[in-house]
């Protein structure tokens, strides 16, 4: 056996019993700056309130890193702004921190006037789109009360796309595909018809009362917990009304 046929020692992440058909062609192993830490967030508006919720499970693959990592943040102490972020945990926290800082700075630069929710929404777009060529891998839902006291909700993709009109409801993250059709039916009344119309007249969309919204949120998350392994442990529900911002913690299944 000639010496040149001996393979040099390497740190191939492959195993000795793996076939070596691709030997010869140089393979590039590169650093992947992203990961997915699971979890789901959900927001629903009513007429004069808005609810944002997120589960508190933080995962890496099949591992549960933590059962108590919150992902709904208040942007300051004396305003109505709340932000939920989900996706890659590090980017999510960084975006939340950037927003908190911006909202705080705005206040001190504008004679203690609070940032409005639509201004915060536009700023969040700028933050996300500013990272267009190395995106923050995070899906955001921003909510708050506007200057007329109406509940406002904005949802974003990872590069900042959002609707200026806001949305009635939004869900993002691991189990969003499970929750969105549920919200279509229960919030937008899709596929619901007035009983008297014999299936010809759609049920008109109306604002839901706060108690109903909170019930829907809990139902959405208990169901998502049943069907998605990255959702569970705890549920953080933040409700914004004219009387203030309230947080409720609910237990979810830990399996």
């Amino acid at each position: 056996m000639s010496l040149s046929s001996v393979e040099p020692l390497s740190f191939d992440p492959t195993y000795s019993f793996e076939s070596s058909t691709s030997r010869g062609a140089p393979r590039q192993h590169s650093f992947n700056p992203y990961t997915d830490n699971g979890g789901t967030i959900l927001g629903i508006t009513g007429d004069d309130f808005v609810v944002l919720a997120g589960d508190t499970r933080h995962t890496s693959g099949y591992n549960i890193n933590s059962r108590t990592e919150r992902k709904v943040y208040r942007l300051g102490e004396d305003n109505s702004l709340i932000l939920a972020t989900v996706g890659f945990g590090a980017d999510s926290k960084d975006v939340a921190e950037t927003m908190t800082r911006a909202v705080n700075d705005f206040k001190f630069n504008h004679n203690l006037k609070n940032m409005t929710v639509n201004a915060a929404a536009q700023f969040l777009f700028t933050v996300l789109y500013g990272n267009r060529f190395f995106p923050k891998y995070t899906h955001c839902i921003l909510a708050g009360l506007d200057k007329d006291g109406k509940g406002r909700l904005y949802s974003y993709d990872s590069v900042g796309s959002y609707s200026k009109e806001g949305e009635r409801r939004a869900a993002a993250g691991a189990a969003s595909s499970l929750i969105v059709p549920f919200l279509d039916n229960q919030v937008e009344f899709k596929n619901q018809y007035l009983p008297a119309s014999n299936g010809t007249t759609e049920r008109p969309v109306e604002d839901l009362p706060k108690e109903t919204v909170v019930k829907l949120v809990k139902d959405a998350f208990t169901s998502a917990t049943e069907r998605h392994i990255e959702v569970g442990d705890g549920l953080q529900i933040i409700t914004v009304t004219k009387d203030g911002v309230f947080e409720e913690m609910v237990e979810l299944k830990k399996d």
Binding site: T35, N37, G89
Partner: peptide
């Protein structure tokens, strides 16, 4: 190494 943070 990714900057992922959590506590437990």
């Amino acid at each position: 190494l990714l900057g992922t943070t959590f506590s437990s």
